[in-house]
Design a protein around this nucleic acid. Sequence first.
DNA 1: CGTGGATTTGATGTCAGTCAAGATTGGTGG
DNA 2: CCACCAATCTTGACTGACATCAAATCCACG
Lengths: 251, 251
Amino acid sequence: MKDDVLPPGVPLLTERCRTCTAAGCSLGRLGPDVRVAQHCYSRGERIDGNGAGFSVRIVSAGLAAASVVIRDGRRQLVCLHGPGDAICPLGPVDADCWAEALTATEICEVTLDTSCGSLLQDPALARHFFELAHARLERLSAHAILLGRMDGTERLCAFLLDMAARIGLRRGAGAILTLPLSREDIADYLGLNAETVSRIITRLKRSGLVRFPTPTECEIPDLARLETRAPIRMLPPQMAAPVAEQMETRP
Amino acid sequence: MKDDVLPPGVPLLTERCRTCTAAGCSLGRLGPDVRVAQHCYSRGERIDGNGAGFSVRIVSAGLAAASVVIRDGRRQLVCLHGPGDAICPLGPVDADCWAEALTATEICEVTLDTSCGSLLQDPALARHFFELAHARLERLSAHAILLGRMDGTERLCAFLLDMAARIGLRRGAGAILTLPLSREDIADYLGLNAETVSRIITRLKRSGLVRFPTPTECEIPDLARLETRAPIRMLPPQMAAPVAEQMETRP
DNA sequence: CGTGGATTTGATGTCAGTCAAGATTGGTGG
DNA sequence: CCACCAATCTTGACTGACATCAAATCCACG
């Protein structure tokens, strides 16, 4: 189940984390200088490294976000981290800046004892770190377009499609999903405010593009139709394909 | 002169490129499987790799930007690339997406013959790629805050401070710089439009925070005062220090 | 069944976008 | 050297989208 949402092409560390997790061990040993520990965080909690050595944290369950809060309290969720995603340290923008659990979240922490030492010695791991950083760069770039050039409705449509692709269950031509973010969190991710998010969702409901049995349960009757409202493609090719190809073939 | 603007902590490839450039050779050899070529692009031109192998391009002079244009023509400059910055391929957001020269720009292209092959074999290079990607992540994160949570004036102030830090010349408590971007480019970088940028600049001029002898020549009389108008810190510590510490000590 | 937080809805204001018209600027050729 | 032209930049009037403030409703939970 959880396997479905792992992004393709990022198997190394995530695979190791999941294997370790599945085996139920809380502390594994992957090789010289590399240790894996597992942590759990509840909603709103801040996800920090233990401080010793260079560490990378991978989400194994739940949803986290890179969160920035500037002086006057304005908050921006820079990047969402679902299962399989890496949480990199964000570095020194002069603002409060951390990874934050949006729901109950399980984290695998991979620690390299000597700072970056193993990165130098294990080329495969080094390449993997590069790919993790690069995957996030691509996500962030798409998000910059969203924040800089889309209007509210487009942002919401793009967001819902993205979430559907990540955690949605396919249902005919559409999908259903449970939004793991509050309206406030969605707003802070999309650069809007909570009331505006609510209003836009109401409009999308009225136009029949989505249904919300409860505020967190979202049904998208027709993914392709919703995609026409987003100016960039959010769905992976196999989800965006026409409905006919999605249906199981019958004799 | 150009040395001043090289960001700290990214010496390896950039150093190699600059050495190569300074020596006036257009094609150097850095090691097995690694070649360096030098290219020039004029304003508006698209910067592409040669397609063969895995390549990374480093700006050695001028200014480039990662540019995205979506279906209906809206354009977003995702990230600026000054001297020393790496131009990573941005990857598949479904939109036209490329690196673009904003001024005459000189590029060092580092090509690894076998796709990522050398990355696997040269740990130092691999780590350097990771650091390049990570440095850009940090920049992009700060830019997400700008696009998502700042108003127009704050964006302009943050932008001008950032440019001052990158390409400005220190002048007492302030700085002078030549903006290498048109109003349109600035707007597309900041998620605004050209008229709004112009209006905001006019307001900043009237409030005495900046002076524009010509539309591209910018004088910031007091960096610290301008920084109070930006909600996040844009200047490196040494530039942000109080004026007294900046002045040459006299006996 | 009450309580508190989240969500929705409404009224109103403001900032930035759009469209349109001038003003500068820089480059070209007479 | 100056006139002209095209591109860029500035300014103005108007509009629209989103934020803000406030109140009502919904929902989960004890």
